[in-house]
């Protein structure tokens, strides 16, 4: 070892020591981080949050705890996270419907509990385009056959959904408005019951996530007619998009991570870096593939832009559904 490299080395070591002590005072995270899951266990946010937490743990070297705060279709958990101390130890994992609550509250003249401005987006992890499906007892093989029929008999066909103003109700509202057709709405209390209603032919149409409907599609129990992505989905390459069919509609079931407003920038940066690494982890990718999803990671700036555009769509859909 020559003298010069010794000097450089020891300077670097001293510098590292200095930053080390500085960081020791404000290192984040220094204890367990809680992710709020606003849906019942096994729900859309939960199945992403759990694999995510297990790959984040070795990266951040702290336990990641998932706390279920289910209620009011995800509003209770979001409100809880919005009111949490912005110290980076309470984060929220939420889905597309986060943008709709304020609009629904305004619609009914209720005090608005929180808006999108109460959250800082950190990262988006998946974004599954929705798909318009029908059951095997219906004759429709293509979107056009369905459209011709539904135009002939307004308010006769029934579509099921995950609940009023829910994540699976809004895309159908957007579609019905764009196509100028009417169907009856059969709200249920979740994505699973909505699919059950379709399979039992108690409803004839449903907008579902591709992942949730794929097993039934492969078994021939449901047929996919149109996809809500901006381009065709790899899982169903022969299903046309709404844009191809002439409707300017896009709708995704996405899952993202949020921090309460006021969380310091340094913490957001740490979490963004960790999320980037977690999203690139093959174990996380494998878990998502198993769910029938692809990792569709977006870092904060892109996610923010996507979220803003998405919120406009969601709010429009809520207004289209209106007060029932």
């Amino acid at each position: 070892m020559d003298r010069r490299s010794f000097v450089v080395g020891s300077t670097a070591a001293a510098a590292a020591l200095a930053t080390g002590t500085a960081a020791a005072q404000e290192v984040y995270p220094s204890r367990a981080v809680t992710f709020i899951n606003p849906f019942p266990p096994g729900g859309a946010a939960d199945v992403v949050a759990r694999p995510l937490a297990s790959v984040l743990e070795p990266i951040l070297k702290q336990p990641m705890v998932i706390e279920t705060k289910a209620g009011a279709a995800g509003q209770v958990g979001a409100q809880f996270a919005a009111a949490a101390k912005p110290d980076g130890y309470t984060l929220l994992v939420h889905i597309v419907s986060i943008s709709g609550f304020a609009e629904v509250d305004r619609l009914y003249g209720r005090p608005v509990k929180f808006t999108n401005d109460d959250f800082i987006p950190i990262a988006r992890f998946i974004a599954d385009p929705c798909v318009l499906i029908t059951n095997e007892q219906q004759p429709y093989k293509t979107f056009k056959e369905f459209l011709d029929d539904v135009k002939k008999r307004p308010n006769d066909l029934v579509f099921s959904s995950s609940g009023l103003h829910g994540a699976l109700h809004l895309p159908m509202a957007l579609f019905m408005h764009a196509a100028g057709v009417q169907m009856k709405h059969l709200p249920t209390n979740g994505g699973g019951p909505a699919l059950t209603a379709l399979l039992g032919n108690n409803a004839q149409m449903l907008v579902s996530s591709i992942a949730a409907a794929n097993a039934q599609r492969k078994a021939g129990k449901v047929r996919a007619l149109a996809c809500f992505g901006d381009k065709r989905a790899p899982a169903i390459p022969d299903v046309p998009t709404m844009k191809e069919l002439g409707y300017d509609i896009e709708y995704y079931l996405w899952v993202g991570m949020f921090a309460p407003k006021g969380t310091p920038n340094s913490i957001i940066t740490t979490m963004r870096d960790a999320s980037r690494k977690a999203a690139a982890d093959p174990k996380f990718a494998e878990a998502m593939t198993n769910l029938g999803q692809d990792v569709a990671y977006l870092d904060q700036p892109e996610f923010k832009a996507f979220w803003d555009a998405d919120a406009k769509r969601v709010q429009e859909a809520v207004r289209l559904v209106g007060k029932v």
């Binding site: 266990p41 096994g42 939960d46 494998e286 029938g292």
Partner: peptide, 11 residues
């Protein structure tokens, strides 16, 4: 539903 999610996560 949770059991199903567990199966899904395991592919």
């Amino acid at each position: 539903a949770v059991l199903m999610a567990a199966l899904l996560i395991h592919g």
